Amino acid sequence: MSKPMTKTQLVAALAEEMGADKKSAGVALDAITGIITKEVAAGGAVTLPGVGKIYCRERPARMVRNPATGEQMSKEADKVVKMTIAKALKDSVNE
């Protein structure tokens, strides 16, 4: 398995794909990231066509175990960000 693409590499690839400079690509990537963050933090969802859907899910209060001590303790309800991968992406990976 190879290393994940870094933000610098992603900006460079985006700039090349857009036919623009790296600064414009970086601004575009930051804008998209900001929009997704705001929408998901507000409880909404964002669908990236061909990639998947990013959404926030609430988890109920529950009992958890401290792995160091084995002690049972209660954990308050919280939210977690989830992503459902699009079928097109799954299919392209499995070809």
Rank of each mutant, 00 (worst) to 15 (best):
M1P: 10
S2R: 15
K3V: 13
P4V: 12
M5V: 15
T6N: 02
T8F: 11
T8L: 12
L10N: 06
A12G: 10
A13T: 15
A13E: 15
L14N: 05
A15V: 07
E16N: 14
M18H: 12
M18Q: 14
D21A: 06
D21R: 09
K22M: 00
K22T: 03
K23H: 02
K23T: 02
S24R: 13
S24V: 10
A25W: 02
G26S: 02
G26D: 00
V27M: 05
A28C: 04
L29H: 07
L29T: 06
L29K: 11
D30A: 08
T33Q: 12
T33H: 10
I35L: 15
I36Q: 01
I36D: 00
K38Y: 09
E39F: 03
V40L: 03
A41T: 13
A42V: 05
G43I: 04
G43P: 05
G44V: 01
G44E: 01
A45N: 12
A45F: 07
T47I: 13
L48Q: 06
G50E: 05
V51K: 14
V51S: 09
K53C: 04
K53Y: 04
K53A: 03
K53P: 04
Y55R: 08
E58H: 03
R59G: 00
R59M: 00
A61P: 07
A61N: 05
M63V: 11
V64W: 03
R65W: 01
R65L: 02
P67F: 03
P67S: 06
A68H: 14
G70I: 06
E71G: 05
E71Y: 06
S74M: 09
E76W: 12
D78L: 02
K79N: 04
V81R: 01
K82N: 02
K82H: 02
M83G: 00
T84V: 10
T84S: 15
I85A: 14
I85E: 11
A86W: 12
K87T: 13
K87I: 11
K87A: 13
A88Y: 08
L89W: 12
L89H: 11
K90G: 09
K90P: 03
K90H: 08
D91E: 14
D91H: 11
S92H: 13
V93P: 04
V93D: 04
N94D: 03
N94W: 01
E95G: 15
